[in-house]
Computed example of a mutant assay.
Amino acid sequence: MEEITVQSSSHSYQVVIGEGVRFNISEYLPKNYSSILIITDDRVAGMYLSAIKNSLPTENVFESIISSGEQSKSVDVFYQLHTDAIQYGLDRNSLIIALGGGVVGDLAGFVASTYMRGIDFIQVPTTILAHDSSVGGKVAINHELGKNMIGNFYAPVAVIYDVETLHSLSEKEVRSGFTEIIKEALISDETTFTQLMHINLNEISNHQLQKYLSYGIMVKAKIVEEDEKENGVRKYLNLGHTLGHAIEAELGYGQITHGEAVAIGLIFALYVSNEVYSIDLPVDTLYTWLKKNNYPLSLKNFNIQNFIQRMKSDKKTTNKTIQMVLLEEIGSPTVYEISDERLEEYLQSFSEKLVKK
């Protein structure tokens, strides 16, 4: 088992990573709670909900089960969860537990941040992708015009990460989550990136997985502690996300996983970095690895103008000018303002190269 301490502006909290820790959730509660609401989805509930409920000390434990998938990060589901919390009688000394992947974590965290102006919540991630979203306190729901456009900065009081829950993930979910680990390596450490390019996701061991999850969490924790509200270096965590979020929104949430969309965004970010800085980042190496591990890398009906408009809805856009996170070299990210004209050129040439591959 490993514990990582993250310092937010309001409090510090522990990220506990290990096998079987879901059976001992009560050990990591920072205080006694009057009641607990577990928010999970209809896929995770059947596998892990009973274990979590049985590990809690209070009789006032309730559950709300949402539909799995990005579509649940909506204002309607958000409102329904508030209704559930009120009907269950949650008060300001209650706790919300987010049991699931990034969708559940983002949604349940936003509910916790707004219910009675804010109550405690704990992240219990069950996906690789959630190693990124569960740490750092960004909680949100989607708007039909943009991903995570309605949200808050609200840190959990603990993150309990049981790696045994990752055994139930599909290949698609493993791919989706591992993209964020690659992103974290690209913005911080060329040696780790090189190591990752030798991993076959179908053969990854528990030891390797826990090692790289811990690595990713430590990279993110360090950045979040320096810049919790995304005024500076935290923007670097958005490498690949400007185009990635646009792809998700354009195709329709749930048509492609977050990590699969960001994977295309990472290739594009490296491609643009090479064009802007006249360098030679390993675009082909990354593309080959993604292809080998069965990432969907083709974009049907690639409408450049639609993507540009979607990218303009990105939270990093300033005065309608798109800001992309690029790399001057692996481990040296920067934020670069890019005009619509240049972006159109890059998207056109990138799409042509993607088709040829």
Rank of each mutant, 00 (worst) to 15 (best):
L186G: 07
N152C: 02
E171Q: 14
L297C: 12
I181Y: 04
Y346P: 07
I25E: 06
N32A: 11
L201C: 11
Q210C: 00
K147V: 02
P333H: 01
A155P: 01
N274P: 06
I86D: 06
V111H: 09
S351E: 14
Y346Q: 09
R22Q: 11
I52F: 09
D132V: 08
S134A: 15
I199D: 02
I322D: 11
K73L: 07
I304V: 15
E63I: 12
V77I: 15
R234M: 00
F23Q: 06
P30R: 06
E345H: 12
T191N: 08
A140K: 06
L243F: 09
L266G: 06
D41Q: 08
E250A: 15
N306W: 02
S10P: 01
L166Y: 03
S9F: 01
T58M: 01
T334K: 05
Y336G: 01
K138P: 00
N306P: 10
M311S: 14
V75E: 13
I330T: 08
S214I: 04
E344D: 10
S68K: 13
S35P: 12
F302I: 14
Y277N: 05
S67N: 14
N93P: 00
T58Y: 09
Q208W: 12
N200I: 11
E329Q: 15
Q210N: 07
G18T: 11
I247N: 09
Y215E: 08
Y215M: 02
L299M: 15
E329H: 05
E184T: 07
T165M: 09
G20V: 05
L326K: 09
S188V: 00
K229L: 08
A85R: 03
Q305S: 13
N306V: 14
F193E: 02
A158I: 11
I182C: 15
P333F: 05
A246S: 15
K220N: 07
F23N: 14
M47Y: 13
M197V: 05
G20R: 02
H167D: 14
E203W: 01
R22M: 15
E329G: 06
Q87M: 09
N60T: 13
L90P: 11
Y212E: 03
S168H: 10
G101C: 04
I338K: 13
E173P: 00
I308P: 11
A85I: 04
R22A: 00
I267C: 12
V75C: 08
Q305A: 08
S133H: 05
V124H: 00
D314Q: 15
